[in-house]
């Protein structure tokens, strides 16, 4: 498995010294994210998120299956992440690295365990037919902070996705194509967003340097990291800090509050991107709007 090239001593010293003075190599503030850009596909549930040079693609697909016997009222939702050499030459298909495991674990905890998606709303016929959703994440480019990007991509894709309308009459289930009935959005209870902090030791004032949205270069040099998942309602969905430099509780709390603040901004960004896409879709095609009504004939 090819390893990442080691960072040279000169580069390392430069970056760390700059951080001690709260300066970053790309000129950003230590607490600011890179520009987040969204690009939606023609299908619902397909979104490409860019955070600087980091790029993650998320796609949501749905199929109807039999529910689990111990949970007959719930649909299922799985997230699949697989890192390949496209993202970075050090990733190999089929050989999950630490980052792979950490990422899938964090997404699992942030999105699935915090019940962002209401699984009961995916039920069609109790104990017989439910929707099974699947989020496939593709990592197209790795320049640091894959975790936050992947989470934003997944949440945006879920918010973007539309489920076909299903009508049940007795034993028969009819799935209506999009031309017949307007598909409905998923029932998302909240939007959990991951924010990862990287720790670099103490700066000139004696405080721990906590950097948001680290690039790949900064990630290779960091001494520790912590991922906090918050939603815009101020609920912390998960926190994970495994090892790395030991940090004061005060600093961690400051980071958590910062995360909550940032998430409000990111939430607005996602909402406006979705709105923009909605408008773009409906532009110049008002007939489609008239056709796709979910009312019955009177």
């Amino acid at each position: 498995m090819p390893k990442e090239p080691e960072i040279s001593l000169a580069e390392k010293t430069f970056v760390l010294e700059a951080l001690k003075q709260n300066l970053r190599v790309d000129g950003r503030n230590i607490h600011s994210f890179r520009d987040i850009q969204f690009s939606f596909g023609d299908d619902y549930g397909f979104v490409d998120v860019r955070l600087g040079k980091t790029r993650v693609l998320a796609r949501i697909s749905a199929e109807i299956i039999r529910p689990r016997p111990d949970r007959p009222f719930e649909g299922t939702f799985t997230i699949s992440t697989e890192m390949g050499p496209m993202a970075s030459p050090s990733f190999e298909v089929g050989r999950p690295t630490d980052l792979d495991n950490t990422l899938s674990r964090l997404l699992e905890k942030s999105i699935r365990r915090s019940t962002a998606l209401d699984l009961e709303s995916l039920c069609i016929v109790t104990a017989q037919r439910v929707w099974s959703l699947r989020a496939d994440l593709h990592f197209l480019s790795h320049d640091g902070n894959l975790i936050d990007t992947a989470c934003i991509a997944t949440i945006t894709a879920l918010a973007h996705f539309r489920l076909p309308v299903v009508t049940v009459s007795g034993e028969d289930i009819t799935i209506h194509p999009v031309t017949e009935r307007v598909p409905v959005p998923l029932s998302l209870l909240h939007w959990p967003i991951c924010v990862t902090f990287s720790f670099f030791g103490e700066d000139d004032d004696g405080e721990m340097v906590c950097v948001l949205d680290a690039t790949a270069q900064e990630e290779a040099l960091r001494e520790g990291d912590m991922t906090v998942t918050v939603n815009k309602n101020g609920e912390v969905c998960q926190i994970s800090k495994s090892g790395g430099v030991a940090v004061e509780a005060e600093t961690l709390m400051k980071c958590a509050r910062k995360a909550a603040e940032k998430v409000k901004g990111i939430d607005k960004l996602i909402a406006s991107a979705l709105r923009g896409d909605e408008i773009a879709r409906n532009k110049g095609n008002l007939d489609w709007l008239k056709e796709g009504r979910s009312e019955n004939e009177r």
Partner: peptide, 18 residues
């Protein structure tokens, strides 16, 4: 009192965290 590991997997309001 410096924290080397912290793990939380449930939802909690940020005010309670401290």
């Amino acid at each position: 009192e410096k924290i080397v590991a912290l793990s939380m997997e449930n939802k909690v309001r940020i005010e309670m965290l401290e």
